[in-house]
Amino acid sequence: MKLSWFPQLIIIGGFLLLGYGVCAVFHIPLPGSVVGMIILFVFLLTGLIKLEWVENFSSFQLRHLTLLFIPPIVSLFLSSTFLNILHWNVFMILILSSVCCLLGSAFAVEWYEKWKRRQIK
């Protein structure tokens, strides 16, 4: 059974609220949205929520995710605190740590795959 987009939105929103509720009650130091995602994931795994009930809405939303990144970027560029953090050393840190992160995971996985292949032989 396929639901139209509005009930799908209600389900996703419900899980978001549920996540916040669980966080508040059990004092979990994770964001409510992450807990909501984990709960929804468990419900999907157990089959209590069918994939078709939330699939369309979520894939639509994730396809247009870029839209949701635009407001924070724009409000940052327009905010007054923006100029205070524009130091060259901060940018150095951001660039170098991004490079470390990228190469670190890429090489780790590549080496792991090579090692695995050798093991099979």
């Binding site: 996703i12 929103g13 899980f15 978001l16 995602m37 984990i38 999907l44 939330v54 939303q61």
Partner: peptide
């Protein structure tokens, strides 16, 4: 926030 919850689907 809703998009984070939606990540459960993928």
């Amino acid at each position: 926030q809703l998009a984070i919850v939606s990540l459960a689907v993928p």
